[in-house]
Design a protein around this nucleic acid. Sequence first.
DNA 1: ATGTGACTCCTAGTCCGTA
DNA 2: TTACGGACTAGGAGTCACA
Lengths: 72, 72
Amino acid sequence: MKNEQEIKEFGLEVRRRRIALGLSQEQFAEISGLHRTYVSGIERGDRNPTIDIIFQISRALRCPPGALLSGE
Amino acid sequence: MKNEQEIKEFGLEVRRRRIALGLSQEQFAEISGLHRTYVSGIERGDRNPTIDIIFQISRALRCPPGALLSGE
DNA sequence: ATGTGACTCCTAGTCCGTA
DNA sequence: TTACGGACTAGGAGTCACA
């Protein structure tokens, strides 16, 4: 994988926003329709999600998808 | 795939920006390090690229990755 | 409540062509 | 110059048991 650092930052941003909403990974998994362990993997930067998944996540976080990819 | 419409908009945005840079798909493929047929598939919304690829594309387009996912 | 390794199934992504 | 098809390999989607 070529952009590990940016993928990790994406995961951390997801985590920040999830926590800001007062949700556990399990609660967020349910809302987003993803598996609990998959959410965990994303937040840790272990997964390389597709754009489809990114849209799902941004919807569950109630934020624009672009806001999660803050790199320049 | 759940977010076909948003994925198509992503592809169109990539196409707009590529053309704005005066590049052919082949030239852009070379710059971005992606395959020519894959670039074509992305612009047409046929593909569901990973976040890794999105970063690669945004770098080649010299724009922030978030700018390509303009959905709300 | 979360991290992790392992697993299956399916697709992301490459490469060859032709129109 | 681009769309699209077929075939292929690497790796993502989705899940589980366990720590």
